[in-house]
């Protein structure tokens, strides 16, 4: 090559083409995806919990997506009743789909683990409830307070194996918000059929509308 303009121009054309294909055109499609009726925006507390999730890097060990059940076993493993679709993520800024399953997928964890007490103990000492877990403890999200100083609004967590002489473990607002967020994760509502914009965008919808599953249920496979 002898011409600078050929190099610079060529480089711009190449990246411009890829940009159109993977950013520009998808934008025109995905921007039209609307929230399904079953999906609520995050409450203030859940949104705060989501920030705590981001700040502590939960995404590096947990995914939030159920992949296509045509060639993965995500649904069979019980991580969701159906594969997740773009509409499930309209309130997610940014997405937290993740790339690693050192721990289980969490997009439907609100259905599997509805008990806040379980989560609080688990964050303080993961191995107290899951003995083989390699999740780090998040003790910095708790305060240790002498029993007599516990206030009426404090959420005391009964950690198994703690002696009566030790200070009491009190959950901080951060970890309470995080638990609130996790308990809200539920993408089992039925998707509208046909799914309008999603269909235009070429997204495969599950053949059958998913069964309605209330948030309290432990009925997931």
């Amino acid at each position: 090559m002898k011409q600078t303009w050929l190099l610079v121009g060529g480089a711009l054309v190449v990246i411009g083409f890829a940009w159109m294909v993977l950013v520009g055109i998808p934008h025109t499609m995905l921007v039209r995806v609307e929230a399904p009726p079953g999906l609520e925006p995050y409450t203030e507390s859940q949104a705060r919990g989501r920030t705590v999730y981001i700040r502590n890097g939960c995404i590096y060990c947990h995914t939030q997506q159920v992949r296509d059940d045509a060639f993965t076993s995500d649904v069979a493993r019980g991580w969701g009743r159906r594969p997740t679709v773009p509409a499930d993520y309209v309130y997610d800024r940014p997405h937290l789909m993740g790339t690693m399953r050192t721990g289980p997928d969490l997009i439907n964890v609100g259905i599997r683990l509805p008990d806040p007490e379980w989560h609080l103990i688990h964050f303080y000492d993961p191995r107290a409830v899951v003995e083989w877990s390699i999740m780090p403890p998040y003790r910095f999200l708790f305060d240790e307070v002498p029993e007599e100083e516990v206030g009426p609004d404090d959420r005391v967590v009964a950690i198994p194996g703690r002696g009566p002489d030790e200070p009491v473990v009190v959950a901080t607002p951060d970890v309470l918000a995080l638990v609130d967020y996790l308990r809200s994760l539920n993408r089992s509502y039925p998707l509208a059929q046909p799914a309008g914009a999603a269909e235009d965008a070429g997204i495969a919808e599950p053949g059958e509308p998913a069964e309605v599953d209330d948030r309290s249920g432990r009925t997931m496979p």
Binding site: V14, V21, L22, L30, R67, D68, I203
Partner: peptide, 22 residues
Amino acid sequence: LGFFYSLNGMHHVIGGPMPTWM
């Protein structure tokens, strides 16, 4: 390299909630 590599990104979300054509 410039032409093909720049289009590779979506292989990080194979099976994920993304238009299949991407």
